[in-house]
């Protein structure tokens, strides 16, 4: 549940979580567009925003929040996403599906990753 190591890649575009036996790797863009912040998720599914134009975004810093989460600070100034261990795991487990949905959502709304 709680990762042992949280590693930010040298180019700051990839986050690796190392657990006891497994490892998960996610891109900064993927984490940014799926930020659990109310700015992105809203307060109900209907309020969810589609974040676009985040290709190539990087993570400036990582802070521990209590014992249950990390806060990621992105270079576009977004800093209100508190990623719980649970949420990070859910994101990684559903990575492909969530990404596909994101891409089709972008298309539907006429938005782009760039």
């Amino acid at each position: 549940m709680i990762p042992k190591n949280i590693i930010l890649s040298e180019n700051k575009k990839e986050l690796t979580l190392e657990y006891e036996v497994k490892k998960s790797v996610m891109s900064a863009e993927f984490l940014r567009v799926n930020s659990p912040s109310a700015e992105v998720k809203g307060h109900s599914p209907a309020q969810k925003k589609t974040v676009s134009g985040k290709r190539g975004i990087s993570i400036n810093s990582i802070e521990l929040v209590g014992n249950y989460a990390i806060k990621l600070i992105f270079d576009d100034g977004h800093s209100t996403g508190i990623y719980t261990w649970q949420y990070l795991q859910e994101l990684f487990m559903g990575k492909d599906k969530i990404w596909k949905e994101y891409i089709s959502e972008l298309r539907k709304k006429g938005l782009y990753r760039d």
Binding site: I2, P3, N5, I6, I7, L8, S9, I62, N67, I70
Partner: peptide, 9 residues
């Protein structure tokens, strides 16, 4: 066992 290490390269 508890606290994770944050490693920023």
């Amino acid at each position: 066992s508890e606290k994770p290490n944050i490693i920023i390269n």
